[in-house]
Design a protein around this nucleic acid. Structure first.
Length: 474
RNA sequence: GGCUAGGUGGCAGAGUGGUUAUGCAGCGGCCUGCAAAGCCGUACCACGUCGGUUCGACUCCGGCCCUAGCCUCCA
């Protein structure tokens, strides 16, 4: 198993600290708003990582934190005149719903900053004792970046180059402009905890150091998160943790790439986000997963409505294969070694830094073999192939629905379309067809198509579905 | 300005010093009242640009152009 380590800049063999066990910490959400597709990518990516490592036999201890105290949460509470707690709870609930929709395996632990104040304070105390932190005139406790020789090793920057291009406003109370807050002095009306440095709350970075060490120990295997956290968040985590413990913090750092919207990063600050909930309303959740995993996790991923539809169709093909070959048809040969090379190729692709696009392509090679076998009358082999396909789809989180359920999936109708009216038109056409009034039937079909409704006549009746982007009215 | 990734066929997206990626779309056939869905088959002088190395480069080296990202809260 090889994983690209952001810290070293190349792929490295995965060598667990404890044989057979992997400690994985991923930076989760800040609970102040709905999750968007960037969060979806983070969740799906590490879900795939966890699933595959477990498939490989590792006992993975997966920790994904929640930031439940932060400037943005406080700001929103003020703006909406709401209780911080209720905002946090709502956001967490919403995030869990999104994760569930996407079929994300729940983390083993989901620590929250406010529930680990003791660990946070202890860690800051250690940094104070060792001289890595100081309290400035206003009462904030800051980390002194100049004291940590390795500062910048993750982001590949030097303190001087950072300073040269810094757009940060210079705070005269800081020894270095890049010093960051460990403990923020309480302001009136803001939530606060008592500490040796007065009432206050933790800075953003310290919680992850404290909680990851609490859950996984001072030195663990993999730390992950979105690429936007690489600097300064992860850089600061390393500085805090390694300064405090004198040990290596995380062996491997994994960063997933951005989701882009029309060649720009999708982010809150640019206001070009799409929420998970909104997306899942229009596209099957598994298609969303497929779309995310059809690009390598480190590459940028452009949002494109057509690609999501394309993902659905690709998946539909695999589903059809599974459905057509799910029945045991006879005595299967003990084990067919014709499948082994394909399975091996799949595993190899995944072992190479989680090359999911390649792995998916091998799923389609398998698909081809199965269909071929079916045509050749080798239905036992086809059945075995279908079983293998389901097994290989597991780490990707594909093929988790019943095939007919997936086929029948309907995205939510846009508001301007009236379900009853459509049904009426469809029945009208069924009636016209019964009378062999083809002209009328075709006319109705055309009208429906213009609304984006596509019909399917079959022996068992007429089905219809809404197809975004089809027809004229959008 | 400093630092990172990238530029592959209509779209998306892997990979490799000389051999088919893969999916979607397209095209042809079967099926269908006609369609759709499904099934079968299938084309595409694809590898940013200019040089270099090599028997041979899309794949290695160098220059150039372009794109995205980080240097500020952000998955």
């Amino acid at each position: 198993m090889q994983i690209y380590n952001s810290l070293s800049g190349h792929k490295e063999k995965l060598v667990p600290i404890e044989p057979g066990r992997i400690g994985l910490y991923v930076c989760g959400i800040t609970a102040y708003d709905d999750c968007h597709l960037g969060h979806a990518r983070m969740m799906v990516t590490f879900d795939m990582v966890v699933r595959f490592l477990r498939m490989e036999g590792y006992a993975v201890h997966y920790v994904r934190n929640i930031t439940d105290i932060d400037d943005k949460i406080i700001a929103r509470a003020k703006k909406e005149d709401r209780d911080i707690g209720s905002i946090v709870e709502d956001c967490i609930q919403s995030m869990h719903k999104d994760a569930q929709a996407l079929g994300i395996v729940a983390p083993d632990e989901e620590p929250r900053a406010t529930l680990h104040m003791n660990e946070i304070i202890t860690l800051i105390q250690q940094l104070m004792n060792k001289g890595y932190a100081y309290q400035q005139a206003q009462g904030d406790v800051l980390y002194s970046v100049r004291r940590f020789a390795d500062y910048g090793k993750l982001s590949g920057k030097t303190l001087d180059s950072l300073r040269a291009g810094a757009r940060v406003e210079v705070d005269p109370n800081k020894k270095d402009p890049l010093d960051f807050v460990l403990w923020k002095k309480a302001r009136p009306g803001e939530p606060a905890w008592s500490s040796p440095w007065g009432e206050g709350r933790p800075g953003w970075h310290i919680e992850c150091s404290a909680m990851s060490m609490r859950c996984l120990g001072k030195h663990f295997d993999i730390h992950g998160g979105g690429l936007d956290l690489k600097f300064p968040h992860h850089e600061n985590e390393i500085a805090q943790s390694e300064a405090a413990t004198g040990e290596i913090f995380s062996n491997i750092w994994m960063h997933n790439g951005f989701v882009q919207w029309e060649d720009e990063k999708m982010s809150k600050s640019l206001g070009n986000i799409l929420t998970i909930r909104n997306t899942v309303q229009r596209h099957h959740p598994e298609a969303v997963r497929y779309w995310i995993l059809s690009t390598h996790y480190r590459s940028p991923l452009r949002y494109d409505e057509n690609e999501l539809e394309s993902a659905r169709r690709s998946l539909a093909r695999l589903y059809q294969t599974v459905a057509a070959n799910s029945q045991e048809t006879g005595t299967s040969p003990e084990n067919d070694d014709r499948l082994a090379p394909i399975v091996e190729d799949f595993i190899d692709a995944m072992r190479d830094d989680f090359n999911t696009p390649k792995a998916i392509s091998i799923l389609f090679q398998l698909d081809r073999r199965i269909r071929q076998a079916r045509q050749d009358g080798e239905s036992d082999f086809a059945h075995q192939g279908a079983l293998a396909m389901k097994r290989l789809a597991e780490p990707l989180g594909f093929l988790r629905s019943a095939p007919d359920e997936f086929a029948a999936y309907q995205p939510g109708l846009p508001a301007h379309l009236d379900h009853e009216k459509i049904d009426a038109m469809v029945s009208g056409r069924v009636e016209a067809r019964r009378n062999k009034n083809w002209a009328r039937a075709d006319e109705l079909r055309k009208e429906l198509f213009a609304m984006g409704i596509v019909l399917e006549d079959s022996a068992t009746g007429t089905r219809w579905h809404y197809q975004p982007g089809q027809g004229t009215s959008e």
